[in-house]
């Protein structure tokens, strides 16, 4: 039940995961800002995206739960209520699925551009690619 006293282990695991995600996001932001190589910037971007996706999953998650699947077609209201109280929230998972697909498209495009930058400039060092002043 959602409203029951959350046990120590549940809180500990959620907080641990949360801090893990925040540290991962911070490291990947460092990689985006501070690494000169475009390849490493793109890798950092994918790590940032993945850590934020896991954060979204965590929002719908509930420790000691069941998958949000109804096993019977003609379930009565009590069984529906039971499932609603014990299952994880499937909507953040749907959001993350969408975000992963969009991330795939964007990353592919970025990798193509990085390839094209390499063909035109002969380097992937962002300090040497500075024809535009911003």
């Amino acid at each position: 039940m959602r409203n029951m006293d959350t046990s120590f282990i549940e809180r500990f695991l959620i907080v641990l995961t949360l801090y893990n995600l925040l540290v991962t996001a911070a490291i990947s932001l460092y990689g985006i800002v501070a690494r000169p190589s475009i390849t490493k910037k793109i890798i950092s971007l994918t790590i940032l995206g993945d850590s934020l996706n896991v954060l979204a999953i965590l929002i719908g998650f509930r420790v000691f739960s069941v998958p949000p699947v109804l096993l019977k077609l003609d379930a009565n209201p009590d069984e529906l209520l039971n499932l609603a109280y014990s299952a994880v929230d499937p909507l953040p998972q749907a959001l993350v699925l969408t975000a992963i697909v969009i991330g795939l498209a964007v990353n592919l495009f970025l990798i193509f551009l990085a390839l094209q930058v390499y063909r035109l400039y002969g380097t992937l060092d962002s300090r040497k690619i500075k024809e535009l002043r911003g």
Binding site: I59, V106, L110, L113, Q116, V117, L132
Partner: peptide, 30 residues
């Protein structure tokens, strides 16, 4: 060269902006 570099700059920061909005949407849901 100009077009590829400008597009890379736009796309890279655009991808970060998209991720930031994604977090905002998830927070709104939560």
């Amino acid at each position: 060269r100009e077009a590829v570099e400008a597009s890379f700059k736009y796309a890279f920061f655009g991808a970060i902006a998209g991720l930031i909005y994604f977090v905002a949407a998830v927070l709104a849901y939560s």
